[in-house]
């Protein structure tokens, strides 16, 4: 069989530069990021249904299993390892306070979804929060504690 196709691309991850790197054409972004040690990005289904791999691409939440690494050419990416600004530290404190995670596998995606909710600066009801996170699967908590944590974040910001 012929050698696998690859593509030469550049992007940044949490400000770190990846210049002229070679990625297999078929590799999705989550696999590439994980191979580079950004293992906070988790894979739960590889079809966009669980939300565990959600990261930030040019300021927006995307499923990194539904983006090819090659498509990230020229973009700025942020993974959970780079969620260290003041707002996200507050979010993490609220997640901790409400025990808004158990095993932690969904947390990176859940935090990214929370980040996008907060950046939209809308006051949301609990039902609306549930709607916003309804693409992120959590088997452990039953979601209530996550809604509690996000609600507190929204109240702090607004």
């Amino acid at each position: 069989m012929a050698a696998n196709n690859s593509v030469n691309i550049s992007f940044t991850v949490n400000g770190e530069r990846f210049n002229n790197i070679n990625v297999p054409s078929r590799q999705h972004l989550a696999d590439y990021l994980r191979s580079q040690g950004f293992t906070g990005t988790h894979l739960g289904c590889e079809q966009g249904a669980c939300g565990a791999c959600t990261i930030e691409m040019d300021g927006k939440a995307v499923r990194s299993c539904l983006v090819l690494a090659s498509q990230a050419n020229g973009t700025n990416l942020k993974t959970v390892e780079g969620f260290d600004d003041e707002m996200m530290e507050k979010v993490k404190q609220n997640f901790l306070k409400h025990n808004a995670f158990q095993c932690g596998f969904c947390s990176p995606g859940m935090l990214m979804t929370t980040k996008e909710i907060l950046l939209n600066k809308k006051k949301l009801t609990r039902d609306e929060i549930r709607s916003e996170i309804s693409g992120n699967y959590c088997r452990c908590t039953g979601y209530q504690s996550i809604v509690d944590a996000i609600e507190e974040c929204i109240n702090e910001i607004n």
Binding site: G51, K60, A61, T113, E132, G135
Partner: peptide, 9 residues
Amino acid sequence: VAHPAIRNK
């Protein structure tokens, strides 16, 4: 249509 992160892409 789906969920926010899907709609972003």
